[in-house]
């Protein structure tokens, strides 16, 4: 590739007359955003961690109690169950959403008539809020299950697969857009070379297409992973955690309750539980952060530099 050697003129956007003052004064321009970031994110975050070591009704009156909340969180069967349940849901939904989104994206980049209309239609579910979706789908599922003399809250597996279907329906369109962008950026000459070398369609897909859209796959898997773990509205509106399972020791577990919902319901279960819920929330944050970073590193290694 030919490299441009000619210097930009001093007054151009990247010329020194313009860029110097920007370099010098950028802290000033960043200040409002940074301030907002501190007030809206950093401060509440630090306060949140502090509160996880406290018992409180409202944050101003927090009483320090040490590690009690964390010990309680690790002993809580409901919390452990919701972790396993969330992990299971994440695995299933990551696979389902990404495979389906990639397939749809692949089909819609094959010069089908009306591809743009299809893209718009598939993207639409994303525009509906989670609570609304949850209620609508609970009606749909109940309507279908009624035919078989049962209902959504009758069994944990209905709630689980119901949520998977709901999330697929909502997220496939969004992931599809990212995959389409990835697919369209694959250099034509590579495909052509593969064709000339006599690669089958299947080989092209595995050896050329997928390695080339690895960056899209990274983004999509990352998004679906964190989305699945942080899922709340849809969970709340679809089943709200029901049905309940009774343990031999008398405790009860909401069998379709995911982590975020578990934290939420703990928080409002009496004032002695607020710090407890806060501790769960901190653990939840660490978990999501670790997972996301690990996943990012893992897929980065597989990306192809074009």
């Amino acid at each position: 590739m030919k490299k441009k050697k000619n210097k930009p003129s001093a007054a151009a956007v990247n010329g020194h007359l313009v860029s110097r003052p920007i370099q010098r004064w950028f802290p000033l321009f960043m200040l409002p955003t940074f301030l907002a970031f501190c007030i809206g994110f950093i401060w509440p975050f630090i306060q949140g961690i502090w509160l996880s070591f406290c018992e409180f009704t409202i944050p101003q009156d927090a009483q320090f109690v040490g590690l009690k909340n964390y010990i309680k969180a690790f002993q809580d069967t409901g919390f452990r169950y919701s972790f396993v349940y969330t992990a299971g849901f994440a695995v299933v939904s990551i696979i389902a959403i990404n495979v389906l989104a990639f397939t749809v994206a692949y089909l819609l980049t094959q010069n089908i008539k009306g591809a743009n209309i299809f893209r718009t239609v598939f993207f639409m579910p994303n525009l509906i809020g989670g609570i609304v979706l949850g209620y609508i789908w609970s009606m749909i599922f109940d309507g279908i299950l009624k035919k078989y003399g049962t209902f959504l809250l009758a069994d944990t597996k209905y709630g689980f697969w119901g949520l998977v279907i709901l999330m697929c329906w909502q997220q496939i369109g969004y992931m599809m857009i990212i995959y389409i962008a990835g697919l369209q950026s694959i250099p034509e000459d590579m495909m052509e070379a593969a064709k000339i070398d006599g690669a089958s369609k299947w080989q092209t897909l595995w050896k050329i297409t997928i390695p080339n859209v690895m960056s899209s796959i990274t983004i999509c898997v990352f998004l679906t992973l964190t989305n699945s773990f942080k899922l709340f509205d849809q969970n709340l509106a679809l089943t709200g955690g029901a049905p309940v399972a009774f343990q031999s020791d008398g405790s009860m577990i909401n069998t379709t309750e995911m982590l975020a919902l578990n934290i939420y319901s703990t928080f409002y279960a009496g004032s002695s539980n607020r710090g407890f819920a806060q501790a769960k929330a901190v653990l939840f944050f660490i978990l999501v952060a670790v997972l996301a970073l690990a996943q990012l590193r893992f897929t980065r290694d597989k990306e192809v530099q074009q």
Binding site: F151, A154, G240, A242, P243, V244, F246, S251
Partner: peptide, 26 residues
């Protein structure tokens, strides 16, 4: 919530009344 859940299982899904009792007492 568990009482409702157990009532529902009992009434509409062939569940046992014992679960209502468990939800209520335990």
């Amino acid at each position: 919530a568990p009482v409702v859940s157990a009532l529902l299982q009992y009434s509409a899904n062939g569940g046992s009344w014992d679960d209502v009792k468990t939800a209520y007492v335990n």
